[in-house]
Amino acid sequence: MKRSKTMELGVGLFMLAGILGLVFLGLSVSGLNNGLSSTSFSLKADFADIGGLKKGSRVTMAGVQIGKVTSVELDQEWFDARVTMELNGELEGQLSEDTTAAILTSGLLGEQYIGLTVGGAPDTLEDGDVIHDTQKALVLEELIQQFVSNMVNN
């Protein structure tokens, strides 16, 4: 009987360790709740070129993560990219209307993310609003092309 109890304890610990491991993989490795609080609100932004931005990419302000991208689709009217992002609910009504969104790259080869910078307008962005002032992703090929054509002109 005693032997059976230790065995049960061992198996129980084993199952528990497996479940804890899965939780670790979920939270720490795949970053399921990326510092998002329970409430959130969504903003949209139109970009001329989003480069490598994907669903799930980070949205940051001053380098601090405040949300993530929830969808990327093509705007069929203007043929630019319409990015929807979910932001920390505490920021609702705090970002000025002329907030700008830029697509940035972390490091030379790192992943791309959205950086928001607040402006100075008195009106604020609410749930579902669109950010108009955007800066498209830096595409290395275009940059090199510009550099080369400048060289040739000079």
Partner: peptide
């Protein structure tokens, strides 16, 4: 970098 690239459904 790990959290940005690992997706829970697709990878785990």
């Amino acid at each position: 970098n790990m959290q940005a690239s690992v997706s829970f459904i697709d990878d785990v």
